[in-house]
Design a protein around this nucleic acid. Sequence first.
RNA 1: GGCUCGGUAGCUCAGCUGGUUAGAGCGUGGGAUUCAUAACCCCAAGGUCGGGAGUUCAAGUCUCCCCCGAGCCA
Length: 524
Amino acid sequence: MTYTLTTPLYYVNDKPHLGSAYTTLACDALARFQRLIGERVLLITGCDEHGLKIQRTAEAAGLSPQAHCDLVSAQYQELWRRWGISNDRFIRTSDPRHRSLVEQFYRRVEAAGDVVEGRQQGWYCVACEEFKDDAHEAEDPECPIHRRPLEWRDELNLFFRLSRYQKPIEALITQPGFIAPASRRREVENFVAQGLRDFSISRRQLPWGIPVPGHPGHTFYVWFDALLGYLTALLEPGDPPDLELAISYGWPAQLHVIGKDILRFHAVYWPAMLLSAGLEPPRQVFGHGFLTREGQKMGKSLGNVLDPAAMLEHCGTDAVRWYLLRDIAFGEDGDFQQQRFLDLVNNDLANTIGNLLNRTSSMARRWFADAVPAVSAAVTDQHPLAQAATTARQLVLEGMGRLDFRQAAEAALQLAITANGFLNDQTPWSRIKREEERQQVADDLYAVLEASRHVALLLAPLLPELSGRMLLQLAQGPIASGSDAAQSLPSAWLAQLQWGGLVCGLPLPEPAPVMARLEPIEWL
RNA sequence: GGCUCGGUAGCUCAGCUGGUUAGAGCGUGGGAUUCAUAACCCCAAGGUCGGGAGUUCAAGUCUCCCCCGAGCCA
């Protein structure tokens, strides 16, 4: 069984924004977690590159659509690379193989009798790539979302007979867990309850798209084309474009993670298309919330967009990942507040977690020959820190499994807080002055080092870089969770999350802060 | 206009099927300490739980109305 999960395929209309980074980061954390517990994972991301909007953007820039897409999708790939995103695939819908797969998929849908011709006239928003319901006689209507003029269209298009899937879709979306978070389910249910209408899957006079076989002059509607990218993405780089082959690698997807704005496409249209083609719908669609900044919508007009590339450069991946995953309930909308960002990163990561490791390692080295102290029999899995580690492990596993990144992050952090408290209670720096307490000090420091090792391991899916630096300070080998991680069953990670794994006498490297404090940010 | 979510300490939020003095983190103030990244640890202040009415022995927790915010559909 392969755990296939996808980010949206980002529309290459503009350079990546923080919202895309947020989605991708979350998926990366989840993918890493699944790998760590021993699953074979296919993390899919990529770019959606067709459509009138892109064609026009390219024209405005004096580029061919393909050249424009090459440029922007390269930015995405570069950004994900720099963020250390562990995607196993990167699909571009302008990939020739994709075209072939779309054709194969379309033929199945056609053969199922689900394609009909129909006339469509109405007001069209190019930015939405969608017909709006404005009255025909409306004068100069605007798109309420984009506040741009709508264009009048009157064309003969191909329609997908979504209406035939009313019952199956109703059954699907009422399945518990299919739409997550549960709070968004009602919204889709209401939409479906109004009755599903056929929707057009082709456009005329749109050169920048995939031609519909057998219908000269028609190209596929971007959504029909884009969603299928999830299937094309399954292919290995050198594979022939074969739908069956693609499917065999890992369909159905376990999870599509998307922004809440495109929930309907993923929870209604897409499953119906798949059913029509004789394929299984995905197991779960998770619609997360949006990010605001200091309470305000981010947008070019307000000039308050956060550039993910700049954030990465100034703050590093750990800081940003921590803030987004630890402080925002995944699924809910979130607000980026600079002060809170600094406070949390500095408190949690630098002061609590980083300093814990630093102070403990420093004491161990000073008093125990630069190594992990030798413990007495008193340090068992009944040790308070062992119990705290078990609790943390449980909460992390459970939280990550439910995409509750916040719970997982807080659980790991709590273990570090408990360990800091333990140190302060035991005061090894006083006890070491009395020779008869030396063993007690050894035991205490061992327990805290071991707890730190657990913190590092528990952070692996959330903050792979920091986790790695911590393990290094503890003289531990790295824990692989990236796309190159070999599948390990039983999970090596879970095996290491057993109390007492730290070897006594292991030489510890010279302490170096694993997480620097962030300075107030002027570049924002 | 219909529907769906929210409105709880300065900020971000927990509060399951109603039940002793409404919780956490951050921020703020104080204390303690020196192993450590002026870090860690402890303590404290702070809320008429959006407003109003009702049900109940008892409501942040249920019902109704209203106000505010977000969203979906029209």
